[in-house]
Amino acid sequence: MLNEKVICAGFGGQGVMSMGQLLTYAGMVEDKQVSWLPSYGPEMRGGTANCNVIVADSLIGSPIINDDATCAIVMNLPSLDKFEVDVAPKGKILINSSLIEKKAKRDDITAYYIPANEIALELGNARVANMVMLGAYIELSKAVKIESLHKALQKVFGGSKAHLIAVNEEALARGAEFVR
């Protein structure tokens, strides 16, 4: 039974909140139980931003992820240092190797090193690094279908931002390809 608990973390501006929201949205599109919980307050200002996303088949109790994350997606070094401990044994950690040289310390979780910024730059838009990471996560976890994420993108990038959908979809695909 699906019970994915994902921590998305990085600098403010790396798109970790919207990465989490897209995953949440895609879960909702599939009629799954979903919740999205952001960090708020001083820790966000200039430091790390993070959100907890749960996508599950059965009703969600607490939206807080304590030390039972099935996956952590970390976009910068402080996030790796902070959230590696919160991944449950046998869980995954997706590390943005463009910005993080350090390796994961634990050997009871599986680490994936994804050069998200490099891939995003190859696509001509540095801001889609978050989608590269999300694409990799979806490929590994199969938490939601890629089509559901496309639907979510259409919802989020409506109207004047519609031209951004294509590059975001491309980034999702490249992330998935990298870990395949």
Partner: peptide
Amino acid sequence: DGMIGQMMEP
């Protein structure tokens, strides 16, 4: 509380 105010759910 802060959590209910800040979180997203369908």
